[in-house]
Design a protein around this nucleic acid. Structure first.
Length: 139
DNA sequence: GCCAACGTTGGC
DNA sequence: GCCAACGTTGGC
């Protein structure tokens, strides 16, 4: 199983909205970046991801699970753009802020820290473990 | 609100 | 195929 991180502006699509979708989950649509899309194409059902709020909050706030592999993004007819479906699994007890990630030397190599603009990115098993610990949940 | 970093587009 | 111009993202 692989781990990922999904970035969203809370004003566009928030963790609360994701939670309200429940088991049905939601398309991760609107991605118009090849690297991000390629990452989604690599995802398998059952892969886990972090849900990250950009802009004002700048923190990992929840855990999601991939429930459908890459398919056409329904918000465009352009067949270059795919997206996966994800559902909320659980919230972190404590949000893990970008600042915490930057401060922790074990997370210094995270894509979140190194490539701030990539909206869908891979997370290593080690990073997954550490952020779960910092967030107060079981991995 | 500004600006740095980065990705994309289009002219040559 | 290169590179300048431009647009967008996201942290500060």
């Amino acid at each position: 199983m692989n781990y990922w991180l999904f970035k969203s502006e809370p004003s566009t699509w928030s963790w609360d909205q994701q939670v309200q979708r429940g088991e049905a989950g939601e398309e991760w649509d609107g991605v118009r970046n090849y690297q991000a899309r390629n990452n989604m194409r690599l995802m398998k059902v059952g892969d886990k991801g972090f849900f990250y709020h950009s802009q004002s909050e700048k923190a990992v706030v929840g855990v999601v699970e991939v429930i459908a592999e890459a398919h056409q993004d329904s918000t465009t007819d352009d067949d270059r753009w795919d997206c996966v479906d994800i559902r909320a699994v659980k919230a972190l007890e404590t949000p893990v802020t970008l600042e915490m990630c930057k401060t922790d030397p074990r997370l210094a190599e995270m894509v979140l820290v190194k490539n701030t603009r990539l909206s869908v990115q891979p997370v290593t098993p080690e990073e997954w473990q550490i952020i779960c610990e910092l967030g107060g949940i079981r991995p």
